Structures are given as C-alpha cells and as structure tokens.
Amino acid sequence: MKTIPSFLLKTSLVVLMSFSITIGTLAQDRANDEPRTSPNATVSQTIGTTDITITYGRPAVNDRTIFGDLVPYGEVWRTGANESTALVVSDDVTIEGNELEAGTYSLYTVPGKDKWTIIINSKLSWGTQYDKSKDVLRFTVEPQDTDFIERLLFYFEDVTNESATVVLRWDTTKVPFTINI
C-alpha cells in the first residue's frame, strides 16, 4: 500500500480549508446568484513545505481616488471587498519577524502615506465587522509607488525555499511583507 506524501496532505487540507471558509461565508451572506461587483480571488504559494493561501475580494478603482479617500488613511480597512480577506498558513511561520501559528486568519490593514500597519486577526467576518480584541499580531511596513492596476491584487514574489514576499497591490500602491518558514 502506498502512502501519500505529507506535503500533499497539507496542501489538500489548506485548499479544502480555504474553500470551505469561502463557500461557508458565501452561503451565509450571499442572498442572490448575481455576479459580484468585486469578484473573489485566491492565490497560494508553497514556501519549502509550508502552504500559504490568501482569499479576497477584488474591488476596482473605477475612476475613484482610493487611498486617502475611499480607503481613509489611519483607519482599519478590511483589505479587499465583501468578506474578510482570509490568510491560511499550513505551518507556523514568521511574518516580518513576528511568529504566527498555523491556522486561518483574517487580514486587515491601516493604510498610511508613509507606513501601513498589517493586522492578522483571528475573526473571519463579512464586511467591516473588525474586532480589535481578536488581533493576533500587528506590524508596520512601507508602501511603495508602482504602476497603476485597476483591481486589487495579492501575489507572491522573491520566492525561495525559506521565504516569500506577499504583495498587496492596488491603484498605484504596492505594499510588500515577508513570510519566513
């Protein structure tokens, strides 16, 4: 009898967890079958043998001023649209020097002109039902100017077997943070 490699089991578990979180939230909070104005997206990356998955809503700029207006500076933002942005990590990791246990979290931010606070929170919810008492960790990073992009996008760059940089990008702003295993 063949055994399934542990990395395949972990990958399957992470994908199933992410899928069930998204489907469960949609089933609770979606009242119709119309297409979303801000469609959902999921991005995953394996770092070594650790799987990282981010599921989020992708709002569009739509000729609006985003940061400092639609998304005010100095206020907690759900960092996407619709449900909380979900961050699933299959193993314990370090994010910007902060230890984070394996699990499923929501990702919020506090945008600023010169620095952003990234918030990892244990509560997944619809919309802006942020609960500060559920914060697991907070850290600050510096935003960067970049080329325009219409829809919010998360992606991974500088991927190695020990680390990767998560990039949040929207409008003309890029906000990177590094995950190490």
Rank of each mutant, 00 (worst) to 15 (best):
N40Q: 12
F156N: 05
G127C: 09
I54P: 02
G80M: 06
E162H: 04
V167R: 11
L70E: 14
L124S: 05
I21H: 12
G57T: 06
R58A: 06
A31M: 10
I95K: 01
D91I: 06
I47R: 03
Y56E: 05
T117G: 04
F7Y: 14
T173N: 10
K2W: 02
K132T: 01
K2L: 03
K2M: 00
P111N: 06
Y105L: 07
V61A: 09
I149G: 08
Q129H: 15
D171V: 03
L8A: 08
L137Y: 08
V167M: 03
V110K: 04
N180S: 14
R78K: 11
T109D: 05
F19H: 15
G68F: 06
T42E: 09
T104R: 05
Y108F: 13
L168H: 08
A41I: 09
D51E: 07
F148Q: 04
G103K: 03
E101W: 04
E99W: 06
N161T: 10
T25F: 14
F67H: 05
D69F: 02
L153K: 07
S44P: 00
E75R: 09
V110F: 11
T146A: 08
R151H: 11
G48N: 13
L152N: 00
T22K: 13
Y155M: 00
T22G: 09
Q144L: 14
V88H: 07
L26D: 15
V93N: 05
L16G: 03
T22I: 12
V76K: 10
T172I: 07
D147H: 08
L100V: 11
K174I: 00
T53V: 12
L16E: 11
S106I: 06
Y130D: 09
A102H: 06
P5M: 11
A31I: 11
L124G: 05
D63K: 14
T178S: 10
A102F: 08
E34V: 00
S18N: 14
T55Q: 11
G127H: 14
Q144F: 11
K10W: 12
Y105D: 02
T46V: 12
